[in-house]
Design a protein around this nucleic acid. Sequence first.
DNA 1: CCTACCGATCGGTAGG
DNA 2: CCTACCGATCGGTAGG
Lengths: 197, 197
Amino acid sequence: MNTAAPLRSRKAQIDRVATSLFRARGFAATSMRELATELGLEAGSLYSHIKSKEEILHRVCFGLAEEFFAAFAAATADTTAPIATQLRLAIEGHVRVLTRDSAASTVFLQEWRHLSEPARTDFLALRDRYEAAFRALVQQGIAAGELHAPDAAFVALTLLASLNWLPAWYRPDGKLTPDEIAHRLAEQLLGGLLVKD
Amino acid sequence: MNTAAPLRSRKAQIDRVATSLFRARGFAATSMRELATELGLEAGSLYSHIKSKEEILHRVCFGLAEEFFAAFAAATADTTAPIATQLRLAIEGHVRVLTRDSAASTVFLQEWRHLSEPARTDFLALRDRYEAAFRALVQQGIAAGELHAPDAAFVALTLLASLNWLPAWYRPDGKLTPDEIAHRLAEQLLGGLLVKD
DNA sequence: CCTACCGATCGGTAGG
DNA sequence: CCTACCGATCGGTAGG
């Protein structure tokens, strides 16, 4: 009778282990047999919990997209705050999502192209919307005279690129906490942009 | 008799087409049959020109590594130049290599992990050496009082991350030439670092 | 969750 | 450069 809870946690466990394998070997090079072995069961048994290999990838990619949007919305909720503050909060929020689960983040950043259509197109649309939101914030900052930069698109691209490199070198047991990293990244990346009084 | 030249160019052609497939689908998800079809021949025929699928990846990854080192060496050849100048030249050189062949660059940046040992370890050692060279340059700049930054390693990481995002959005037929992009990236990335007089 | 298995496809080779 | 093929492995399913 009490099967709902164990099933849910088993599925979550499959997602978690699969995600770490996808990061280590890539989605295409990870076999369901490898995943099953890591979980201590047979390959066929996986399919009583999931529908397909891609379903896992789909959940990881779209789940993280949702987290990024939620963090951005929270960072920019107070529209009366200075744009520089909103941008700083958005950077910190982005970093917080990236470091909360760096395996999932890496899969989100690198393995989305193994999604088949139409999921792949949908995913790219979400990513573009997110980048556009960052770009718009930078643009507002320039318009408000809080930031100086010749090209908001360039700024947004290099900003996100710098942040998205984080999962490649972040170690949870490193010297800096995620919040400290976020703070330093925000300082450094905004340092050259802020208009000095 | 005159077989050396055609064979050499056929091999180069295989590398080129394979590289673009590796970028589009990833190394693991690209099949030799797909590659053969794209080249207008049968899968088995590939092996009179190459030894293995991985051999192609190896050539691309290590070939590009060599190009990056050569560009860096040229940029820093004049050790009497200000560090800021050397750093600017190194950034421009890096961008020039990235844009000269953005398919190969993407493979270099994303697919190296499909190299088997010991090539994979060798490759990572090269990448670390390259990052260390950039880091050392930033450190020299700070020591010389030309740059101000709290952490050279942080600067080097975000610098290279910003540059390495370029192949993801660079279009050869875009508005900006590679040199213009390189110049703007250098300006923006060094803008916040340079000590104002 | 397992056993047993499916058809498809993989990288690569032999021999010409 | 092709034909014909190898053993291995793939994602996934049927039936229990």
